[in-house]
Design a protein around this nucleic acid. Sequence first.
DNA 1: GTGATGACGGACA
DNA 2: TTGTCCGCCATCA
Length: 116
Amino acid sequence: MKKDSNSGFFEKVYEVAKQIPAGRVTSYGAIARFLGSPQSARMVGWAMNASKEMDGIPAHRVVNRNGVLTGKNHFSGTNAMQVLLEEEGVKVKELQIENFKEIFWNPLKELNHKSY
DNA sequence: GTGATGACGGACA
DNA sequence: TTGTCCGCCATCA
């Protein structure tokens, strides 16, 4: 069973991405950092690419450190990603989130709270 | 089996 | 200050 899809990294990314609340956004680095490998941010984006074919993975809520929809190029149309965010209440200007820091969702903080 | 790339991020010159 | 290079894990050629 070594050839299973249980790569580890991907699954973690999916878990975090699926927990992103609507109207919020996060960055690849934040997720990668949450996984324990801040420099593996590239891998996070790669996982998102695979997540496209999965349901429940709001990849449009994941942007780069600049708050720019870098991955919109991988989406269906041209500005589908931007529209999706705006539909959730996220202010996006030219593929760039204006109040990125205001709606930024930190997995390290939110998932680490676990104070229920 | 090896080499290069990828939806990023940080460090260095 | 800006520009360039490296690293990370996985997938594709």
